[in-house]
Amino acid sequence: MKDSLIITFCFILGLVLGIYKFLPEFLIKNSFSNYALYLILFLVGVTMGSDKKTWFFFLSKSFKLVLIPLSIIIGTLIGSGLISLAIKEISIQEALAVGSGFGYYSLSSIIIAEIHSETLGMTALLSNISREILTLLLTPFFVRFFGPLSPVASGGATSMDTCLPVIAKYSGREIAAAAVFSGFILTLVTPFAVTFILNF
């Protein structure tokens, strides 16, 4: 949660300084290069690769658990694709790219802003932040009406960290363990899915 607040603060600080033109010119001209994005993809990769607990423990326990992130990916893409039919300014491809952030708003919005446009990057940021907030707020409701796995689906990639305490509380320990695995897989899938969809 602390990291989410810092991330949001960094973005808002940048936004305000940008709007009031308080930033030195070299920063504006040189920012957001492809190289910075390559570096961040490498660093995210290192973090994911070093996590041996999640990788092997869950896969050895039950291969069926893969169905959880798989169903979230399919459901998210169908949901995002369908709503794009109702939104004039957004194409199916753009909606799918935004949706495939799976709540991982920091990385997905950075990638989208870099390889597509800042406007869509902004949409991705706000969409994926709202996915996290809605999960945090509505988990008790989801569990009651749609079952214990529903907040894991709703939280997407954030099920493994920010949304985990609330999932553990309302869905129980067993689902919380599945939430860590599912969130991990979705976190790993996000950069691939976003890049793939926008280059399709």
């Binding site: 069926k64 658990l65 949901g79 995002s80 369908l82 996915r131 529903s150």
Partner: peptide, 26 residues
């Protein structure tokens, strides 16, 4: 607004697909 609409729809879609998976696994 578009971002929130996409997230609501994505959440709805993923929850719908999670229900049979819950019954199958747990």
């Amino acid at each position: 607004v578009n971002g929130i609409l996409i997230s609501i729809s994505a959440i709805a879609g993923s929850i719908v697909f999670s229900i049979p998976v819950y019954f199958f696994i747990f």
